[in-house]
Simulated scan of single mutants.
Amino acid sequence: MTFDILDYGFIRRALVGCFALSLSAPPLGVFLMLRRMSLAGDALSHGLLPGVAVAFALCGLYVPALALGGLLAGLVVALGAGALARGTGGREDSTLAALYLTALAAGVVIISWRGSAVELTQLLFGSVLGVDDWALVLMAGAASLTLLFLALAWRPMVLECFDPAFARAVGLRGSLWHLGFLALVVVNLVAGLQAVGSLMAVGLMMLPAIAARHWARGIGGVVAVSVGLAMLASVTGLAVSAVMDVPSGPAIVLAAAALWLLSALLGPVDGVVARLRPRRHLSG
């Protein structure tokens, strides 16, 4: 049954788009995890909603308008949190939480006022039917931009994650890389809007990244495994979505969650089974 659904063009488009996102979003999730910013991705995904809602109220389900609105709103939340934290002396995470809660409530109100329940569900949780040519171009563009950034910024970002003091000592402009990194997180969340929805987009970014740490120790290995797990979750989730007629976003995220649970249980690196297995001691 899984292979029969590939006869449908909208499934193939959604699958290609999710594969593109799987190449770029999980590596960003790995760096969010290393920076102890895992929940920041969730906050940013909620922060997209007001911009998406305003674009929807003005233009309907027109992908370029939705993408532009979501991008602007996400950047305002991401950059505004840092600016408010510096201006008030507060913590960036608390400011981000306040902004995203406000943004989420405002976005849901606007969409509910303008659209139907079906359209609200599609924007929040995604739909394979919504992955058209514009959405594919957006996903491919986000993946290409992210991979180019990671190719240029890999070493400084890894250095800042593991030894920020040395990075500052050698004159590494960590704030610039950080802002570029957050901007790409927003871009990838916007790109995943059509396939997985604004509330579920962060799931494809974070769950494979969290699961991958149970299969590899080096950062390169974790990134590679996270991409593979995201692709597997995309295939499984889209198949379930098409066969059972459920929103594609939750189906993909649940598939990624199942892979995370299996990884946490059976993974060789800090998995439950591996930790219960007796360790060999050195004998003299």
Rank of each mutant, 00 (worst) to 15 (best):
Gly267Met: 10
Ser263Ala: 12
Val243Gln: 13
Ala258Phe: 09
Ala274Leu: 05
Val240Trp: 05
Leu238Lys: 06
Leu259Gln: 07
Ala258Asp: 07
Val253Ser: 05
Asp270Cys: 09
Leu262Gln: 04
Met231His: 14
Gly237Tyr: 02
Ala251Asn: 05
Met244His: 10
Ala274Trp: 09
Leu262Asp: 00
Trp260Ser: 04
Pro247Ser: 03
Arg277Gly: 05
Ala242Leu: 02
Leu261Lys: 08
Val222Cys: 01
Leu207Val: 12
Ala274Lys: 06
Val222Asp: 02
Ser263Met: 11
Asp245Tyr: 10
Ala255Asp: 06
Ser241Glu: 02
Leu266Tyr: 14
Val272Gly: 00
Pro208Arg: 08
Met231Arg: 14
Ala224Cys: 08
Gly218Val: 00
Gly220Asn: 09
Gly267Arg: 10
Ala224Asn: 00
Leu232Ile: 15
Gly271Arg: 04
Thr236Tyr: 00
Ala239Met: 05
Ala258Glu: 08
Ala274Val: 05
Pro247Asp: 01
Leu204Asn: 00
Ile219Gln: 12
Ala251Gly: 07
Met244Cys: 12
Val223Lys: 03
Gly218Gln: 07
Leu265Cys: 13
Val223Ala: 09
Val273Phe: 06
Leu204Pro: 00
Arg217Val: 15
Ala230Trp: 14
Gly237Val: 00
Leu254Met: 15
Ala212Glu: 08
Val240Thr: 08
Leu232His: 11
Gly221Ile: 00
Ala212Ile: 03
Ala251Thr: 05
Ala209His: 06
Leu266Trp: 15
Ala224Leu: 13
Ala258Ser: 15
Leu229Ser: 13
Met205Ile: 03
Ala233Arg: 12
Leu276Thr: 04
Ala224Tyr: 01
Ala274Ser: 15
Val272Arg: 13
